[in-house]
Amino acid sequence: MTVTDALGLLAMYETAATIRRFEQRAIEQYRLGNIRGYLHPYLGEEAIAVGAIAALEPDDYIVSTHRGHGHAIAKGHDPRRMMAELFGKEDGYCRGRGGSMHVASRSIRNLGANGIVGGGLAIAAGAGMAIKQRGGTEVVVAFCSDGSTANGIWHEAMNLSAIWDLPVIFVLENNQYAVSTPIRDSARVDRLSDRAAAYGMPGVTVDGNDAVVVLEAMTEPLRKARAGEGPSLIECMTFRHGGHHVNDPGLYLPQDELRRWKERDPLIVLRARLTEAGVRDAAIAAVDERVEQVMDEAVDVANASPNPSVEAFLAEVSSQ
């Protein structure tokens, strides 16, 4: 797929719209009481997962975060089974045992979302080591958040990946807040990507609201990783469209800043690119319609799916 290819763009748009509508529908279902626990929407950050994963092959791996629905959908998870997992149902990806923060799939090569911020980063390095030992050419994309860069594991995972030339691409989603704490209160560097130099790997900062920019930023890191030349860091600047999780109104977010970022909504940016590439509005509308249909099905599947059997669970655990 080339960047300017209208079909490629349309596919990226469809993924972004799927993530957008999935999150919105999940929030609705949460309000209806069908989903419990923590739910961290990816609203406003869709371009990062879409762009980064559009650059990958199906057998490449990803490691996800607590804000992981977008990564999972972009990597190929079925929104129906995702929604079923959020509902805690048997047909969900984790059979109702993991929920929103723990969606994972071996076949899709999503090593997993994580309830621990930074919890997946060394795991990404480990998958990179496995690829290297097998002599493979796959890569691992380690999605991580600005908050995680304050944690030791972020630094250790970066350094280990660097010293052993592991095929890992750290895609840092800098939405500039960790719950209510702005990144400027957690880091003294203006660009978190400057830290890449400390580990001897390339680091760039790019517009995380433009999926095409993110996709392009993957090119050189992918080449290096597949050639055995080690890891890279891509910092993608973005902003949440709402609170930290579904029950956080996010009132601490500066409203003018939020408005500016919403003007550059990843879906608006992608639509503009589609128009520029000569894709007609009708074609975009057709995608939107298809996405809506999948979402209706997702909610139906999640509703219809059985709850996991308590008896079976007890039989499983009472012998342990």
């Binding site: 419990r36 149902k89 109702g96 045992r97 993991g98 929920g99 007890l314 342990q320």
Partner: peptide
Amino acid sequence: GYNTTIPFNLALEKAS
């Protein structure tokens, strides 16, 4: 508690 990871599903969580 049973010797298990705590499940997400509320009914399983309660049972655990």
